[in-house]
């Protein structure tokens, strides 16, 4: 009987633990009433997602995930939520109308769209992670500054315009 069970490798245990936690936290983001707790669920979700990237040897991607999303964006989210001082039930009144139905339909449609694009290429995957240096800063830096230097520069200009625009909107006198 025991021999019939599929063998579980340490890699699978790691992945299942991380992915399960990430999925639970993703549910928690939408299921919890308290906005601060939802935000904290999102923080944990981003944090755990970074560890999944680490297990795939995408080190730079994982650390950027923590640095940008967990460390900067979610802190701003929390800051805004706490400044507004919302309490859970006042801002999310339960109403019976067509919104949930349309929302679920659109969500399922989006899921189907992404799944149709992702699932087919995933059939060809044979290895559990990339080579060690695949996601290293050196490899990504070289690719960014050789093959993709124009998209990179254009993106940086776009970000700069965004920064200048946001300062202009927020503060007329500097």
């Amino acid at each position: 009987m025991i021999a019939a069970l599929p063998t579980i490798t340490p890699n699978q245990i790691t992945f299942l633990a991380l992915a399960g936690l990430a999925a639970m936290m993703a549910v928690g983001v939408v299921a919890l009433n308290n906005p601060v707790r939802s935000a904290m669920c999102l923080v944990v979700n981003f944090f755990v997602l970074a560890f999944i990237y680490f297990t795939l040897n995408a080190q730079l991607l994982g650390i950027t995930q923590i640095l940008v999303y967990t460390g900067a964006i979610m802190v701003l989210f929390l800051f805004v939520i706490m400044l507004l001082n919302l309490s859970g039930k006042q801002i999310f009144p339960e109403k019976l109308d067509a919104k949930p139905v349309i929302g679920i339909a659109v969500g399922l449609g989006l899921f189907g769209l992404i799944a149709s694009q992702v699932l087919l290429p995933m059939q060809k995957i044979t290895k559990i992670n990339a080579e060690y240096a695949y996601g290293s800063p050196q490899a990504i830096g070289k690719t960014l500054f050789t093959n993709y230097v124009w998209p990179f520069e254009v993106t940086s200009m776009l970000l700069l315009v965004g920064i200048v625009g946001s300062i202009l909107l927020a503060k007329r006198k500097i």
């Binding site: 601060v36 923080v43 640095l67 967990t70 802190v75 240096a133 050196q138």
Partner: peptide
């Protein structure tokens, strides 16, 4: 490979304890 970035990332998590 990401030594310095790791320090930056973890130190940016320090704010959560205080804020929460």
């Amino acid at each position: 490979d990401i030594g310095i970035l790791y320090v930056l990332a973890i130190s940016s998590l320090g704010v959560y304890g205080v804020v929460l």
